[in-house]
Amino acid sequence: MVRRAGMLLAWTAVSWLWAPPALALVVSDVAKEFICSCGCNKMLTDCDMQCGDQLRGVIAAKITERWDKPRIMELLIRNYGEKLLAAPTKSGFNLTAWLTPFAAILAGGVMISLAVGEWVARRRAAQRARLARPVTVEAEYLKRVDAELKHFD
């Protein structure tokens, strides 16, 4: 209970500390979601060609008409196609674009963790086997080396 309350408090604090200020919609808020339609491959916010001006003009006009961001985005996608979006949508098949890199890294992380776990276990087993052998001068010496290496950074 205390832990849960603590987490809630921490979340509230973080949300308050990093709460974005509420601002009116501007052209760049919408334009940053699109690339230019003329094939220059630039973000719509950065394109200084005529086609960029024209698209930003459409966005500005719709903002003046009090359209919200999703509605303006929908209009542009309907008129120019999904290709105008600067990044794939986060739905349907496009979701694989977003999830695959993280899934691959997660899988890699799990594999590394398993491998390291196995290597550590193997090392420990080898050490146990060595320690189980009757103590000889060599074993004493190895133990000393191990102990010294532990303190060696």
Binding site: K32, I35, L85, A87, F93, A97, P101, A104, I105
Partner: peptide, 28 residues
Amino acid sequence: AFATLWGTVFPLIAEAVRGVKVTVGPPF
């Protein structure tokens, strides 16, 4: 490197699977 490769080739994959052209740009 894999995320970059995936983003680079995803437009081709999306077009092959869905028949729709998509862009993978800086926001991704």
